[in-house]
Simulated assay, not measured.
Amino acid sequence: MNGRSSASRVLARRLLAEFVGTALLVTMVVGSGIAAAQLSPGDVGVQLLENSIATAFGLAVLILLFGPVSGAHFNPAVSAADWLLGRRAGTGISGQHLVAYTIVQAIGGVAGALLANIMFDRQVFEIATKDRLTTGHLIGEVVATAGLIALIFTLARTGRAGLSAAAVGAYIGAAYWFTSSTSFANPAVTIGRAFSDSFAGIAPNSVPAFIAAQLVGALIGLTLVVALYPGVAAAADEVVVPHGNTDN
């Protein structure tokens, strides 16, 4: 009984970390997008620069803050890749925990967008109208997500997971610019951004295709890292950063 109770408390803490972390990530993305549009009206390039800098640095901070508790996935694609990779090796996240992570990440994404709307005196509940559904954008999402997954699992496999905060933040900041989609690379963030009709928004009709492209990208990234590092499954417990040392 005590073992079950302890495991439940550990899971509760991890889910709280994933919820709050994902919510704050979306708040940073959407909030900085709204601020950028207000500060630099008419200059989309400067707006994107402001948005990408805030997101890159903010994501690094969130990984440092919540990583020791939950691993700082903040992304259903990362959690799914962790589960898929660790199935045979007995490592990584369990199937039940994958479902729980995905649910709280998605809810957190929506909550983060609503919080950004509130902070900038917008309507609390908005539906984005920015249509992003183009072939180029979908390919951009495949590329962005594949690179993110390959980076995260390579760092874990090579014993450099401690660099994930800086490396993942830097990658996402760069991918804002080298991908046509501005690198959502995250189903939970994609869902959240549909709830703010702002610079960072995405129309609901674009969301399913974006998520499908992200999942394809995750599989490609995982395939690449398995080919490069055949023993990577053993490191699934270290994604995105080593966690569990706060469980007691």
Results as ranks from 00 to 15, higher is better:
residue 1 M to R: 15
residue 1 M to A: 15
residue 12 A to H: 12
residue 13 R to G: 15
residue 14 R to F: 12
residue 17 A to M: 07
residue 18 E to K: 06
residue 18 E to V: 08
residue 20 V to N: 09
residue 23 A to E: 04
residue 24 L to H: 08
residue 27 T to F: 13
residue 27 T to N: 05
residue 39 L to V: 10
residue 41 P to C: 06
residue 53 I to C: 05
residue 59 L to F: 03
residue 61 V to E: 04
residue 61 V to F: 11
residue 64 L to Q: 12
residue 65 L to A: 13
residue 65 L to E: 02
residue 65 L to N: 04
residue 65 L to H: 09
residue 68 P to V: 03
residue 70 S to D: 01
residue 74 F to L: 00
residue 74 F to E: 00
residue 76 P to L: 07
residue 77 A to I: 01
residue 78 V to S: 00
residue 79 S to I: 03
residue 79 S to K: 01
residue 80 A to L: 15
residue 81 A to I: 05
residue 83 W to N: 01
residue 87 R to D: 04
residue 93 I to G: 02
residue 96 Q to D: 14
residue 100 A to C: 03
residue 105 Q to L: 08
residue 105 Q to C: 06
residue 108 G to W: 02
residue 110 V to K: 00
residue 114 L to G: 01
residue 114 L to A: 09
residue 114 L to E: 06
residue 114 L to W: 10
residue 119 M to D: 10
residue 124 V to W: 13
residue 135 T to N: 12
residue 142 V to L: 14
residue 143 V to N: 10
residue 144 A to H: 12
residue 146 A to C: 12
residue 146 A to S: 14
residue 154 T to G: 14
residue 154 T to A: 15
residue 156 A to K: 08
residue 157 R to Q: 15
residue 158 T to Q: 14
residue 163 L to C: 11
residue 164 S to Y: 11
residue 166 A to S: 12
residue 169 G to K: 00
residue 172 I to L: 14
residue 172 I to T: 11
residue 177 W to K: 03
residue 180 S to E: 12
residue 180 S to N: 06
residue 180 S to L: 08
residue 184 F to N: 02
residue 186 N to T: 02
residue 187 P to E: 04
residue 187 P to K: 05
residue 190 T to C: 03
residue 191 I to M: 02
residue 193 R to A: 05
residue 195 F to T: 01
residue 196 S to C: 12
residue 200 A to I: 07
residue 201 G to H: 05
residue 201 G to I: 01
residue 203 A to S: 10
residue 209 A to R: 01
residue 211 I to K: 01
residue 215 L to Y: 09
residue 216 V to I: 15
residue 217 G to D: 02
residue 220 I to P: 02
residue 223 T to M: 06
residue 223 T to H: 06
residue 225 V to A: 02
residue 229 Y to R: 13
residue 230 P to M: 02
residue 232 V to A: 08
residue 234 A to C: 04
residue 236 A to R: 04
residue 236 A to F: 04
residue 236 A to N: 02
residue 237 D to N: 15
residue 244 G to N: 01
residue 247 D to Q: 07
